[in-house]
Amino acid sequence: MATAAAGLLGLLWGWLWSERFWLPQNVSWADLEGPGDGYGYPRAQHIFSVFPVAAGIFSVRLLFERFIAKPCALHVGIEDSGPYQAQPNAILEKVFISITKYPDKKRLEGLSKQLDWDVRKIQCWFRHRRNQDKPPTLTKFCESMWRFTFYLCIFCYGIRFLWLSPWFWDIRQCWHGYPFQPLSRGLYYYYIMELAFYWSLMFSQFTDIKRKDFLIMFMHHLVTIGLITFSYINNMVRVGTLIMCLHDASDFLLEAAKLANYAKYQRLCDTLFVIFSAVFMLMIPFCQFNFSILFYFCQ
């Protein structure tokens, strides 16, 4: 049984990393084992350095939210208090948890007779109890401010790095000499930090506020990690840096719009969201153009 499982895993691994699929003709993975220049070529073992970096990023986040984001939230008028607490009542709590959070008229009348409360008072209790489960705005502000800060910082780093890179000014350079494109120190740091950040989001999603789009965001982080990892291992890092930088530009604008919304700066929120939408739409033709060039060079 163990031998069969190992053989199946070997076939799957061989299919996943098929040289015919990932690399141009007459190029093998062994060709990328050479020294190259600087940091050599990207290798799969480099990915393991991501996990301690991700743990460090998560630790920095905890300090940032407590000592920087929270004071900023209080400064813009976001209260450090949760929603109104519902009056403790065992019967209503049992109905709320086990039966319904939105009792109908018949159930309200039955509870009114049982507790000797007015129907209006019971309705208020359920409303307060529902609000009690909603995450406080202060927590949402701190989470968004952390993401905004990281996306802005990594975007600035990306622009500074790409400004001196030839493929920033001529996109065709992304595929010039592919896959024999040496890995520089700046490119290595850029990729590792991006990948580590998304791994930290993957971990922290289980401790952050549980939102309705939890599963969608989990799949988003998983796909993003997969794309960054695969593009690194098969040395598509040049085009990868351009796409990551463009994504970061739209992401920090989106988080900025959320911050403005939490702080009730509605006009600023609307303006930032319009700019975010425009930047996000730019990514579609850019990605299509790069994939068409990739297809051309891999013929």
Rank of each mutant, 00 (worst) to 15 (best):
G36A: 09
R238W: 03
R147T: 13
L23W: 06
F51Q: 01
Q85A: 02
N261D: 02
Q299Y: 07
T137N: 13
S112N: 04
M219S: 03
G177D: 08
D118L: 04
L11I: 15
F206C: 02
A256M: 08
I97L: 07
D170S: 15
S231F: 04
C174M: 07
F273K: 12
E33C: 11
Y151F: 09
Y102L: 11
I233W: 04
K212V: 13
A90Y: 04
N261G: 06
C298H: 08
F150I: 10
P182V: 03
M202R: 01
H247T: 08
M217W: 11
Q173C: 10
M1L: 13
C174N: 09
T224I: 00
K210Q: 12
W15T: 14
A30K: 15
I275S: 11
F150W: 07
T241E: 14
G34A: 13
L254E: 01
A44P: 00
W175F: 13
M217T: 09
I284K: 12
G110P: 00
F168H: 15
L272A: 09
R127P: 00
N235R: 08
D31E: 10
D118C: 04
V27Y: 03
W117H: 11
Q299F: 08
A263W: 05
Q299W: 07
Y198D: 08
R120A: 12
F180D: 01
G77S: 01
F273W: 11
A86H: 03
E19H: 12
C287T: 14
R66Q: 13
I97R: 06
F126M: 01
C156H: 04
T271K: 15
Q114G: 01
K70M: 03
D213V: 07
P88H: 00
L272Y: 02
F206V: 00
P166C: 12
L12Y: 15
Q299T: 11
P35G: 09
C269W: 00
W146V: 04
F48I: 15
P52K: 03
N26C: 12
G38D: 12
M236A: 10
K106D: 08
F161D: 12
H247Y: 07
I228H: 08
F295W: 13
Y41N: 06
A6K: 15
N234A: 11
F64C: 04
G158A: 04
T229N: 05
V274I: 09
G82R: 05
F230Q: 14
F203M: 05
Q205E: 06
R267T: 15
L108S: 06
S98G: 01
F148A: 10
L8Y: 15
R129T: 03
Q173F: 06
K212L: 14
I284L: 14
C174G: 03
K258A: 10
C174T: 05
F206T: 03
F148I: 03
F280Y: 07
S277I: 05
R66I: 10
N234Q: 12
S200I: 00
N261W: 00
F280A: 10
I57T: 02
P103D: 01
A44C: 04
S250Y: 05
P166H: 13
P52F: 02
T224H: 03
I243R: 03
D80H: 06
C153R: 05
Y265G: 02
Y157V: 07
L215R: 04
R185S: 09
N235A: 07
I293L: 12
M145H: 09
W199Y: 07
Q25V: 09
F214H: 11
I99Y: 09
G7T: 13
Q25A: 08
W22C: 05
Y188H: 10
Y151E: 00
L32N: 09
Q205F: 01
